[in-house]
Design a binder for these strands. Structure first.
Lengths: 131, 131
DNA sequence: GCGGGGTGCTTTCCAAACGTAAGTACCCAC
DNA sequence: GTGGGTACTTACGTTTGGAAAGCACCCCGC
């Protein structure tokens, strides 16, 4: 349908229909969001990013951080620079594409933060209504 | 830290630290995104929304659609209007708050669609590099 | 010269999330 | 009176995600 809607002509698999939906899922994934926001600030090393993300949300497992970074790298959002030194040093940064995505995601995050009070009062009203 | 960063002063649970992160997760969740985009167009009934969402991504289970709508309703993004008729008729629409969120999510989705070609070529380069 | 530590992952195993399918309650059309 | 449509809810099995350990490498203290 394209985001702007319209009937779906084909009838293949969802993946074949809407490949961009997958990219959107990567960008808006729980850890994708946080990774993009932190990389927007400056490049980070792996474990540095892990600590940074853990500081603002719940902690990321190394597994998920690695997976998220690989996905975003494959999608052309994140640049991975692995220096063959000991101990290993890998720097992650945003591509131009990734920066565009990250800025939008960051805007959404900031908006959410600003509107938090409204959300809280909506929640209280909702919870109270069914007691 | 607020999205704009800065050191974390407290050291309670992640939920207590950053409540807005949960709201962001609701809004950017796999089905939350699609529900918001579709409701931005016009109000929808439950099964109508289910079909619409299924048309553009993979199909939503009724369970997850119900759960997503309840979460967004509690967060004050979605309005639920249940008319006590037979057969039951329930209309879902966006609140002012929900519309703001939906617009940003839709912008992101449109951006993803526009940039899809770049993502695809990045993926081909990535996949080819490790063969 | 050897245990401990730090790096960036990968693997293993278990818990939580999610999807599938069936159930519920209600009435109308056939 | 059987089938169908609505909006859910529940039970169960699969998929996904998290916690923890492993790995490969070397430097450092002792």
């Amino acid at each position: 349908m394209a985001v702007s809607s319209g009937p779906q002509t084909g009838k293949g698999s969802a993946e074949a229909m809407c490949p961009y939906r997958l990219v959107l899922e990567h960008v808006t994934s729980r850890w994708g969001v946080l990774v993009l926001i932190h990389l927007l600030e400056r490049p980070h090393r792996f474990s540095e990013l892990r600590r940074a993300v853990g500081r603002m949300g719940r902690p990321v497992s190394e597994k998920m951080l690695a997976q998220t970074l690989q996905t975003l790298e494959r999608d052309g959002m994140v640049l991975r620079d692995a220096q063959p030194v000991i101990p290993p040093r890998v720097d992650y940064s945003l591509t131009a594409l990734g920066r565009e995505a990250a800025e939008q995601v960051r805007t959404l995050a900031l908006w959410t933060e600003r509107r938090m009070a409204e959300v809280d009062s909506a929640r209280r009203a909702y919870d109270e209504a069914r007691t």
